[in-house]
């Protein structure tokens, strides 16, 4: 599989978003309907440790954006800032603005719970609730005031997560009884039940075997037709295979993470703008 033929998705991005990706100057947040999330001057501290510095990034609608980089470079930290999961870490402090369309969701007046309903998340290790498959999907919808047809919701979420055929006869079985790959797809289905706008995935396939990984990747491409997806991965091939935009993160001498560059995926892997990006990807690709 060659990189250039594999993903030509970036060419389909139109308008300002096309210019935004990889451009030196980012547009004013909230002005472009094709940009869903805009990070401006994002800085994260854990206590006195400066974990991530000055990230500026636009995330385009209905595309897959991948974060890559060495471990400890802050890519998961940035991802978890986007739906305010860092609020759960007592020492974490997130500065800067995170624009969800035209709203700064990093403001004090914003309830993180509401943010997470619009911006769902899938975690590194599959973490289904110790409940039945159906309840796994319904719980999030229920607490968010879902009153529609439950069976329909379960089926459509499971279908979208490409899990329906495997579990349709055992919806009352425990979510923990599934295989690892199935559990992760259940977690994706669970995230879909809230009808989110954006889905964040934190190394969603790192705990899975190669076949399950491929299934998850196919699923991501499928979901990108309707959802905006941001994925953290330690696997460069995976970023190359699935993403439209790739952001390379690195860390400086103080172990502070920062973003080196964000480019359309094909560009970043064939013709990186930054020397450090090139060193990193060639080091791995040999």
């Amino acid at each position: 599989m060659s990189l250039t033929t594999e993903r030509a998705g970036i060419d389909q991005i139109t308008g300002n978003a096309r210019d935004a990706i990889g451009a030196g100057v980012l547009p004013e947040p909230g002005t472009d309907r094709n940009v869903v999330i805009s990070l401006r001057d994002l800085n994260v501290h854990y206590g006195r440790f400066h974990a991530v510095g000055d990230v500026n990034l636009d995330i385009p609608r209905n595309r897959i954006t991948a974060f890559i980089g060495p471990s400890g470079c802050g890519k998961s930290t940035v991802l978890r800032s986007i739906n305010r999961m860092n609020d759960l870490v007592p020492t974490a402090k997130v500065d800067g603005t995170i624009w969800y369309h035209d709203r700064n969701i990093n403001g004090r007046d914003i309830d993180p719970v509401m943010v997470r309903r619009r911006i769902g998340m899938v975690f590194q290790k599959p973490n289904p609730f110790p409940k039945s498959i159906a309840e796994n999907i319904l719980w999030g919808a229920k607490i968010n005031g879902f009153t529609g047809n439950k069976a329909e919701l379960v089926e459509s979420c499971l279908r979208r997560a490409a899990l329906w055929d495997e579990v349709k006869d055992k919806l009352d079985a425990s979510g923990l009884a599934l295989s690892g790959g199935q559990q992760q797809r259940l977690c994706i289905a669970r995230a879909l039940a809230n009808n989110p706008d954006v889905i964040l995935m934190d190394e969603p396939a790192s705990a899975l075997d190669p076949i399950s990984t491929l299934k998850i990747e196919d699923l991501m491409r499928e979901l990108a037709r309707n959802f905006t997806i941001v994925i953290v991965t330690h696997n460069m091939q995976q970023a190359a295979r699935v993403s439209d935009q790739t952001c390379f993160f690195s860390l400086n001498e103080q172990r502070m993470g920062f973003m080196v560059e964000a480019s359309p995926t094909t560009e970043l892997f064939t013709n990186p703008k930054d020397r450090r990006t090139e060193d990193y990807i060639t080091g791995r690709f040999g």
Partner: peptide
């Protein structure tokens, strides 16, 4: 109780 369970619930927008 594993933290991943809490994260899962927070992740779907629970209070």
């Amino acid at each position: 109780v594993p933290p991943s369970l809490r994260e899962a619930a927070y992740g779907v927008g629970a209070t």
